[in-house]
Write a protein that binds this DNA or RNA. Structure first.
Lengths: 119, 119
DNA sequence: TCCTAGGGGGTAAATTTTGTCCCCTATGGC
DNA sequence: GCCATAGGGGACAAAATTTACCCCCTAGGA
């Protein structure tokens, strides 16, 4: 894990949540897990933009924060399944709202990004 | 502005919202603006962890996405006021939920961060 | 003249996050 | 032996972001 050198300003709840959901793929991971895509190889296929390396790192962080639980079946070949914990469940409303907001403002955002890349 | 080299995967709404709210201080800026702390110098005082440089950069991005509006009063010394646009208002529920969630899970998160820094 | 408030910005460094590449265990099929 | 799947991980490089450190402007007051 990377050791932070700048202490986090965590007075406010926003920063807390940012700390948990901050990774690039974490929201998607949580979303996927809720939908039943809960094994590492499935997640890799479901989120093709990310390397398994990064997904593993982010999954581990989510696990550290107690947002997801990892169940390892002692088999060969190994089988691993993630699931949302109770705490993780409480994040769902936020994720759903974020998803909805993003969809509703898709046109706006894509336009801005397109403009930006022109310069 | 920084020019991204890796294209953003924006299929899903989550990524869109991430793009808008992604900056380290953006949620705090929006929160502060809603509370009436809407002039650059006030914001700098309200968010002491960030340089005015960074705040300016992030404010500009928020403005680009049409989330806040910048009003410049043609005076000397100059006076600038930010306000949420209608689109920006629609982000408030998300921010409030994030804030609430963070507060409710403060103990958990602080514990995890403390553990992490021990290693 | 110097300091303050109020606004802004450029450049380079530091920090943090992602990505690339390679390797390991074990089983089973060809 | 070679490939595939299922899981894992480390070293290092690159990209992205944030910060540090300077600088600019105007006007007013001591």
């Amino acid at each position: 894990m990377y050791e932070k050198k700048i202490p986090l300003p965590l007075e406010c709840g926003l920063m807390m949540t940012r700390e948990v959901l901050g990774g690039k793929w974490k929201p998607n991971l949580l979303f996927a897990i809720v939908e039943g895509i809960n094994r590492p190889s499935q997640l890799q296929r479901a989120i093709p933009g990310a390397t398994k390396r990064v997904l593993n790192l982010q999954l581990r962080e989510l696990e550290e924060f107690g947002v997801i639980a990892k169940k390892i079946y002692p088999q060969l070949p190994p089988r691993v399944e993630y699931s949302l914990t109770e705490v993780g469940q409480t994040l769902l409303p936020i994720l759903l709202q974020m998803n909805t907001w993003g969809e509703q403002n898709r046109t706006l955002i894509e336009t801005v990004i397109a403009e930006r890349s022109k310069r």
